[in-house]
């Protein structure tokens, strides 16, 4: 559990090498030939990858390359999008979550999500966290769940005296940590984060990044980010996505270009596109 957890030194980008990481990695997600279509438009095609337990996996790439779209297939949030269709297999613990007999509600209980814009419910801090467990039939010990979730999201000390205050009175960074606490409260396996810090100031961003490292001890985290430095700071594995343009057919689609350990991808990328992107030549 804790082998993959390391203290991160954000100022120097110093990190332990991949060699010290356990060689046997437990697979949480296994994607095979995954593609996402909106009507005739193919947003992402042919993604094959595995997501490993208790790691932070970062998705990077230019805008419109389908990384957020792909993230939303992990907990079937794209079911909410009209005309969207997923092909291929998204296996969670070996089970394709797009099988007919899978209840998306059960999927989302186990695979939580934090959005780009903090979206607390317009209720009290307490009620924001209690909402999930209550829905799942938890009647007793809600107070403890609220406290633990807030502690795990590094928010408890800031809000412990005002649990009944409206969540919207918190700052943006606090709201985002509240949203993280809220998703922890339903005890998920995986937390998906869709550019969780892009709407926040640098200090709030730093706190979220710290939190992500801490949470990786207990949860598997997949994070989409526009910020390459962020991917470098927080992630164990990085996947670089890019837009593939087919001039003949006049179509464009997001593809997975390169995927591997973060340090390797940033220091010694195999693909020229990856190299160009991390050097900031496009994106």
């Amino acid at each position: 559990m804790t082998e993959t957890y390391r203290e991160i030194n954000l100022s120097s980008n110093h990190r332990t090498t991949e060699d010290t990481m356990p060689q046997v990695q437990e697979t949480v997600f296994s994607l095979q030939s995954v593609g996402i279509k909106y009507g005739d438009f193919s947003a992402v095609s042919n993604v094959n990858m595995e997501i490993y337990k208790n790691q932070v996996t970062a998705f990077i790439g230019p805008s419109g390359c389908g990384k957020s779209t792909l993230l939303r297939t992990f907990n079937r949030m794209n079911d909410l999008v009209l005309n969207s269709k997923v092909v291929g297999e998204v296996a969670y613990q070996g089970k394709n979550i797009y099988d007919q007999d899978v209840d998306p509600v059960e999927v989302r209980r186990r695979i939580g999500m934090v959005f780009q814009q903090p979206n607390p419910f317009p209720k009290s801090i307490y009620d924001n966290i209690a909402f999930g467990p209550r829905n799942h039939g938890v009647k007793e010990g809600i107070d403890d769940i609220v406290e633990n979730s807030l502690r795990n999201a590094a928010l408890w000390d800031e809000v412990k005296n005002k649990l009944k205050s409206p969540a919207l009175s918190l700052s943006g960074g606090q709201q985002q940590r509240l949203c993280i606490a809220r998703s922890i409260a339903v005890e998920p396996d995986v937390i998906l984060m869709d550019e969780p810090a892009s709407a926040l100031d640098p200090i709030a961003t730093l706190k979220i990044e710290h939190l992500m490292r801490e949470l990786a001890a207990k949860y598997t985290i997949v994070v989409v980010t526009h910020n390459m430095q962020q991917a470098l700071r927080v992630s164990d594995k990085t996947a670089f996505f890019n837009l593939e343009v087919d001039e003949e057919k006049d179509t464009r689609t997001g593809v997975l270009v390169e995927y591997g350990p973060t340090t390797k991808l940033f220091t010694d990328p195999k693909n020229e596109k990856t190299s160009d992107y991390i050097k900031g030549k496009f994106g």
């Binding site: 509600v105 979206n119 419910f121 829905n135």
Partner: peptide, 15 residues
């Protein structure tokens, strides 16, 4: 009502 409220609830495993 902002769709983010509905999405937030759905993402928490609400029906």
């Amino acid at each position: 009502v902002p769709p983010s409220i509905y999405q937030g609830a759905i993402a928490l495993g609400a029906t």
